[in-house]
Simulated scan of single mutants.
Amino acid sequence: MSEAEKPLAIRAADAPARQKPSNYPEPFASRMAGRHKHPLGDLFGLTNFGVNLTRLEPGAETALLHRHSRQDEFVYVLEGAPTLVTDTGEIDLQPGMCSGFKAGGLAHHIVNRSDRPAVILEIGDRRPGDSGEYPKDDLVAALGSDGAWIFTRKDGTPY
């Protein structure tokens, strides 16, 4: 997209949803049903960090429980009452609450256990050489040189 084609500003809720609902291989991709990501940073050509407006239907989750090796992440709750799940505990969130995750820190994800949709803003850097660890699943992710995630089992075999 050329500079002339990029918008100067948009209403975030009007941003197009991600074309592919999940990058995870099966059987993990289907666990992302009810998650709708709207990449906001990409619309403006941002390359150093990503921003997603993410809507979680009841029962949906942002991602598998994970931690990044190099990427810091930040989330801000706009609507609803999702639950932050980490490898050390859980906390119920409300609009206006936020949380951050340093690279290599707590494994985390957000689950919507309520009966109403939840909307969050997710922000993360795009540091080269990042990898993802999934403590509860037989999955490892490595960020390829092309920016695409490469998923394998923990023993290194491909999906």
Results as ranks from 00 to 15, higher is better:
Glu3Trp: 04
Ala4Gly: 04
Ala4Pro: 00
Lys6Glu: 11
Leu8Thr: 13
Ile10Glu: 07
Ala12Phe: 14
Ala13Gln: 15
Ala15Ser: 12
Arg18Phe: 07
Pro25Gln: 06
Glu26Ala: 10
Met32Tyr: 12
Gly34Gln: 03
Pro39Leu: 04
Gly41His: 05
Leu43Gln: 15
Leu43Arg: 14
Leu43Pro: 05
Thr54Lys: 03
Leu56His: 00
Glu61Asn: 03
Thr62Tyr: 00
Ala63Gln: 01
Leu64Met: 15
Gln71Phe: 04
Asp72Cys: 04
Tyr76Ser: 01
Leu78Trp: 01
Gly80Thr: 04
Ala81Cys: 11
Val85Ala: 02
Glu90Cys: 05
Glu90Asp: 12
Glu90Lys: 09
Ser99Gln: 08
Ser99Met: 10
Lys102Asn: 06
Ala107Met: 05
Ala107Phe: 03
His109Glu: 07
Ile110Ser: 00
Asn112Tyr: 00
Asn112Arg: 04
Ser114Ala: 14
Ser114Gln: 06
Pro117Cys: 12
Leu121Ile: 13
Ile123Gly: 00
Gly124His: 10
Asp125Thr: 14
Asp125Gln: 08
Asp125His: 07
Arg126Pro: 00
Pro128Tyr: 03
Pro128Trp: 05
Pro128Met: 04
Asp130Pro: 06
Ser131Asp: 13
Gly132Cys: 09
Gly132Gln: 12
Glu133Ser: 14
Asp138Cys: 11
Gly144Arg: 12
Ser145Lys: 09
Phe151His: 08
Phe151Ile: 07
Gly156Thr: 01
Thr157Met: 05
